[in-house]
Each structure stands twice: as C-alpha cells, then as structure tokens.
Design a protein around this nucleic acid. Structure first.
Lengths: 190, 190
DNA sequence: CAATCTCGTTGACCTAAGTTAAGAAGTGAA
DNA sequence: TTCACTTCTTAACTTAGGTCAACGAGATTG
C-alpha cells in the first residue's frame, strides 16, 4: 500500500528503473512514528537510517537545555545520521513533529543489498554528491542572509514548512526567538 | 622538491601507502599563485581542483559588492569547487590571501587516474564522506554559536588563522564587521 | 624626510533581536 | 461551561552588533 508510494517519491529525486524499484520494494521495511517520537538522542549510536514516506521530522542540538533546530525533513527526504555512517555517538537529536511514516534500513541490510547488487554503489555515491552540494548551499545561504531574509526565503522555497511547522520551531530554525519572528511577520505586512 | 611534501601533508589526513604515494607523485602538477590571485570567479566553470601545499586561500560570495567569506583553506586541504563536480557556473569566488603553492588536477587527469587505478574510487568516496561530516559539523557549529563564541572557537581551534588572516577577513568570516570584532576582542581582555 | 595607504581601534548614535511579562485565541478535557 | 494548556502576539526595556566618522600605528612610496 505505501510501498508504491516510496517509488513515486524516490523517483522525484533520481531516476528509478523497473529493476531498482523491484529491489527497493524487496528490501524496504516500514514503520509508523507518533508525533513527537524521538528517534535519535545525543550520545546514542544510530543504527538506522530513514526515508520519509509521509510526515515531518526535525534535527536539533540541545544547548543549555534549549533546542537548536538545524534541519527539517519532509516527504522524500533521507535521514542518514552522521552517527550512522561513522559509528560515533550522535551529537544531536532527531524527532518527528507530526505522525510520520518511514522506510528504514540498517547497516546489515544495507551491506546485504550492496553485496547482491554492487551496481547500487554508484547510485549511492551520486545521491551523496547531491546531498553534499545541498548542504554546502544551505550553509552558504545561511551565512549570506539575516533572519528576515531567511524567513522570506522559507516562505518562497518551503511554503509547506510555514504551514505545517509550529512558529516557535520555525523561529528556532531561522535562529531567532518566537517573539522576533512575530515582529518580523508584522513588519512584513507593512 | 615540494613533491615529497605533498605526501607528508596528505598522510596527515588519510593513510598513504607506498604505491599510492608513487601514483600521486606521478600525476601531480604544481603551480605557484601570487597573493590575491583569484582562481575562480562567480559565473565561471571550474576545470581544476586544488590541493594546498603551502599558503592560504578563501572562498567567498559577492553580495551587493561585498565579500562574504565562508571558508578558509590552508596546508593539506583540498578545494573541489562544486562547479568542478557538477559542471555548473560557480556561485562563489576563490582567491589566495598569501603566496600559495598548490598541486592541481583536472577532470581529464582525474579520469585517467581512475581508469588506470580503479581502487582509488573507494579512497575518494571515503574522503568525500569525511568532507560531508566536516561540512555538516561546520554548519551546525555556526548555527549554534554567536559571533563572540565563534571567535573564541577560532582562537582555540584555528590559532594559525588568527595569526595569518587579516582581522577584517576574520571578522567577515565570523559574520560581523571589523569594528565589532575589535570590540569583542577588547571585551574579552576584560 | 614627508605624503600616502592600509589596517586596526575608538566613540557616538542607531537598529534588530533578546528578555521579561502579560494577554488573546484556539483546543481539549473535566 | 469552565479550566487548563498551548501557541502566538504585543509592549517595555536591554543589549550586541551596524554605521559613520575620526584617529593612530606601520608600511610603502616619492
């Protein structure tokens, strides 16, 4: 039922052949996470990576008991915690902010796939390169803009987030307090 | 003359076998760049990537005629412009801030190497993964700290940059004006 | 040597975001 | 319906950084 949805979503990002679709369906495991579920904590080892079929998640640090959100993930995005790739305790948290349906993998199943289908390595590498460019762009974009500009950019490029994410989480992500975002919004209405 | 130095520097970051050292020396080309040389401009296609043997470079955007520095590179670091990997016009500039000696490569020589020595692909992938983790950490680090904290962190983790980079470039990198960095430094002397 | 430039510093004033506190609107539960 | 809780908004005040202008120390040049 959700399985074909995975292929639909994935194919929006990279070309998926019949064979590949078959393969993905064969290996995919799915689970449903309640709103607010914390799927990775600081200090933990991540032994799963996730593909969001439906829902929304956030990645955040805890600094003096305060959340610092650095990323939202939505449908079609992949969460590969750095703790998962380099086997070190995680420095950050990942949790859902809505009921979220994910497909997930672990190192064993991943290795099994690569062993049986080595042609996937290059696909992964390409996805990785794309991710790298995205991450760099995000960083540069952050550095080049002030909170108001970042908010405007969110409105333009991720209107979905404006709708589904609470304003205090948006403000946090933008790097300001909810009160300030409130003022910015007021200011923008002129 | 500088050739053995390349291996020394590289081996600080990843293990280099005898064979690999041989290979690198065989393919490496070296050039010397004057202080202030701009090696990549906005809008240009990058057809070279660089390895710094000696010297210092900066990566920056031009926004309303103002530089916005997002990265310094020093000895042992590799500059692979995103324009180089994905063949799109560059969005940023790269220039030297000192006389700089680099080893450089282009897609043709890179392909030649991979063709003759496919075992290097996995090495490159690992370097890439390390780079990805670094980039993400840098971003998260930026988001989690204010200018004063960023300056203190620079002092602690990149004292070399404090010494060799002009204060207005440091301030720019930290995300503030030179006057503000001056005040922060004064404040910190208590 | 004086004249010029570059770079860092300082001071006065301005502005956007932080802080604190209060209140309004919506939701859900008793 | 009332109460509690969450989320967003508003206001008053504080503060860190921006802006503008001036100055001083080194380095460079004529």
């Amino acid at each position: 039922m959700e399985n074909t949805e995975i292929i639909d979503l994935l194919s929006k990002h990279i070309p998926i052949s019949e064979n590949l679709a078959q393969l993905i369906l064969e290996y995919s495991q799915i689970k449903m996470l309640q709103k607010g579920a914390v799927i990775l904590r600081e200090g933990q080892m991540a032994n799963e990576c996730f593909f969001i079929i439906n829902g929304c998640m956030k990645k955040y640090y805890l600094k003096d008991g305060e959340e610092k959100i650095t990323k939202f993930y939505t449908e079609g995005e992949i969460i590969t915690p750095s703790s998962y790739t380099n086997q070190e305790p995680s420095k950050y948290y990942v949790s859902t902010i809505e009921k979220t349906i994910v497909s997930y993998g672990n190192p064993e199943s991943e290795n099994a796939i690569y062993k049986n289908h080595p042609e996937l390595e290059s696909l992964t590498r390409k996805l990785g390169e794309k991710l790298m460019v995205n991450t760099t762009n995000e960083f540069d974009n952050w550095v080049n803009h002030n909170p108001e500009e970042r908010y405007l950019q969110l409105v333009k490029e991720r209107p979905d987030l404006i709708q589904r994410v609470a304003q205090y989480d948006l403000a946090n992500y933008i790097g300001i307090r909810p009160e300030s975002l409130s003022r910015i919004r007021k200011r923008l209405l002129k």
